[in-house]
Amino acid sequence: MAFWKITVQNIQFPPDVLGSIPEDLPIPLNDGACEHLDNMLLPDISLWSTDDQKINLSHLSGWNVIFCYSMTGRPGFAIPEGWIQIPGAAGYTPQVCSYRENHIAFKHNGIGVYGISVQTPEAQKEATNRLGLPFPLLSDADHYFSSALKLPLLEVGGLKLIKRLTFILKDGVIKKCFYPLFPPDKNVFEVMAWLSENQA
Rank of each mutant, 00 (worst) to 15 (best):
A2D: 14
W4M: 03
I6Q: 15
I6P: 02
V8K: 06
V8R: 06
V8D: 01
F13P: 00
F13G: 00
F13K: 08
P14V: 01
P15D: 12
V17P: 00
I21Q: 06
P22M: 05
E23S: 13
L25C: 08
P26Q: 07
P28S: 08
P28E: 05
N30S: 07
N30Y: 11
E35I: 10
L41D: 10
L41V: 11
L42Y: 09
L42M: 07
P43G: 06
D44V: 08
D44N: 15
D44I: 10
S46Q: 03
T50W: 00
D52Y: 10
Q53I: 01
Q53C: 08
K54A: 12
I55M: 00
N56M: 13
N56K: 14
N56D: 12
N56S: 14
L57R: 06
S58A: 12
S58Q: 15
S58R: 13
H59F: 09
H59I: 10
L60G: 00
G62C: 09
W63T: 13
V65Q: 03
Y69W: 07
G73P: 04
G73K: 07
R74M: 14
P75V: 14
P75I: 15
I79F: 15
I79A: 15
E81Q: 12
E81A: 11
G82F: 10
G82I: 13
W83I: 10
W83R: 08
W83A: 13
I84F: 15
Q85G: 11
I86Q: 12
I86L: 15
P87A: 14
A90H: 04
T93V: 15
V96M: 06
C97T: 08
S98D: 05
N102C: 07
N102S: 12
H103L: 11
I111A: 09
I111L: 10
T120N: 04
K125Y: 02
K125R: 11
T128L: 14
T128K: 07
T128I: 14
N129F: 11
N129Y: 14
R130D: 14
R130L: 11
L133Y: 10
L133H: 05
L133A: 07
D142K: 11
H143W: 08
F145E: 02
S146G: 06
A148R: 05
P152Y: 03
P152T: 05
P152R: 04
L153W: 09
L154Q: 08
E155R: 13
E155Q: 14
G157A: 10
G157W: 01
G158H: 05
K163V: 02
K163N: 02
R164G: 03
R164M: 03
L165D: 06
L165R: 04
F167A: 01
K170R: 12
D171G: 05
D171A: 06
G172Y: 04
I174L: 05
K176I: 10
F178H: 05
P180S: 03
L181R: 09
L181E: 11
F182H: 15
D185P: 01
N187V: 13
N187W: 04
V191Q: 00
M192K: 00
W194D: 00
L195E: 09
A200H: 15
